[in-house]
């Protein structure tokens, strides 16, 4: 009798421990705030999907995503609005926050829509960065030039697409 009772308690306890990553958020809407030093692109607007490039890999966000913090890497953020319209914005760097209530904040240092990028200017920035890399005197200057090369290549890729 006592054994059966103990088993019952154990099963109940086990059942109570089961828990998902996030306690279920209310509704399945995702409010996006997307801002940069130069412009606010979205302000608590409900959207369908967001794809972001980050140092922990590129990932897509849908409503009820696991709460996440990530650091942005230079690249294209794609926002799919509720009517299916896609907006592609190039971000230099910044942070992405996915909250428990499904709201998302993308904060970038500098962000511009793909249409504002200039292929030849990006090419120029790339060659400038490459020459800086070749003439880098110390470890720090070399690392700085390497970042510039990486970013310029990414801009060029996005501007050519």
């Amino acid at each position: 009798m006592a054994l059966a009772f103990r088993n019952m308690l154990r099963t109940a306890a086990r059942r109570m421990q089961v828990r998902g990553y996030a306690d279920a958020p209310k509704g399945d809407e995702m409010a996006l705030t997307f801002a940069a030093g130069n412009k606010v692109f979205f302000n608590k607007q409900v959207v369908k999907q967001i794809d972001v490039p980050s140092f922990s890999g590129s990932f897509g966000i849908l409503p009820k995503h696991v709460p996440t913090l990530a650091v942005l890497r230079p690249g294209v953020v794609t926002v799919v609005e509720n009517d299916g319209k896609q907006t592609k914005i190039f971000v230099s760097s910044g942070t992405i926050t996915v909250n428990d209530d499904s709201s998302v904040q993308v904060l970038a240092e500098e962000a511009h829509p793909l249409e504002s990028l200039d292929r030849s200017a990006a090419q120029e920035a790339l060659s400038k960065a490459q020459s800086e890399l070749n003439s880098a005197a110390n470890e720090r200057a070399k690392a700085e030039a390497l970042i510039a090369v990486e970013v310029a290549e990414e801009v060029l890729k996005a501007a050519s697409a």
Binding site: F90, S93, E109, L117, D118, A125, A129, L156
Partner: peptide, 15 residues
């Protein structure tokens, strides 16, 4: 890193 990235992006914009 962020400062450099932003700087490069600003240089790559349309005139």
């Amino acid at each position: 890193y962020s400062n450099i990235a932003a700087k490069v992006l600003r240089r790559s914009l349309k005139p």
